[in-house]
Amino acid sequence: MYLRGVHAESHIPALLQLIRENPLGILTTAIKSPQYPLIQASHIPFVLDVPETADGTLSNGILRGHLAKQNPQAKVLMEAAAARKEQGHDTLELLDEVLILFNGPHHHYVTPKFYVETKPDSGKVVPTWNYSAVEVYGKVKVYCNSQSDETSSFLQRQIGDLTQQSESLIMGYTGGDRPSPWEVGDAPARYVEILKKNIIGIEIKIDRLGGKFKMSQELGKGDREGVINGFENLGTEAGEGIAKMVGERGQLKDSHNRE
Rank of each mutant, 00 (worst) to 15 (best):
S255R: 07
E93H: 06
K253G: 01
V126S: 10
L252T: 07
E52Q: 13
M171A: 09
I199L: 11
D177L: 14
A80G: 11
D223W: 08
L169D: 00
G176I: 10
K197L: 10
K205Y: 10
G211I: 09
T128V: 04
Y173W: 10
H107L: 10
V110I: 15
G210E: 13
N198Q: 10
G241I: 14
K244M: 11
I159Y: 04
H11T: 09
N145P: 03
E150A: 13
L3I: 01
M1I: 02
I31F: 09
D223Q: 07
L162S: 04
E9L: 10
P23G: 09
K75H: 04
Q158P: 03
D186W: 09
P120C: 12
A54Y: 03
K85N: 02
E240R: 15
D177M: 11
L58G: 04
V126W: 04
Y36L: 15
H66F: 14
E150L: 02
S33F: 01
A68D: 15
S166G: 06
Q158V: 09
Y137S: 08
K69F: 02
H7E: 12
R157Q: 12
F102L: 12
K124N: 10
I200P: 10
K119C: 01
K196G: 06
S33G: 03
L252E: 15
L67R: 00
S180L: 14
R249F: 15
Q17T: 14
L58H: 02
E97M: 13
S59C: 12
A187R: 14
Q35P: 08
Y109P: 02
Q251L: 14
T111L: 08
T151P: 05
T91Y: 05
E79F: 14
L162C: 09
L162P: 01
S146K: 14
E9P: 06
G61L: 08
V134F: 00
A83I: 10
A14T: 13
G241R: 09
D90C: 05
F154M: 08
H89W: 01
G201P: 14
G172F: 08
D149W: 02
P120T: 12
Q35S: 14
Y137C: 07
R178E: 12
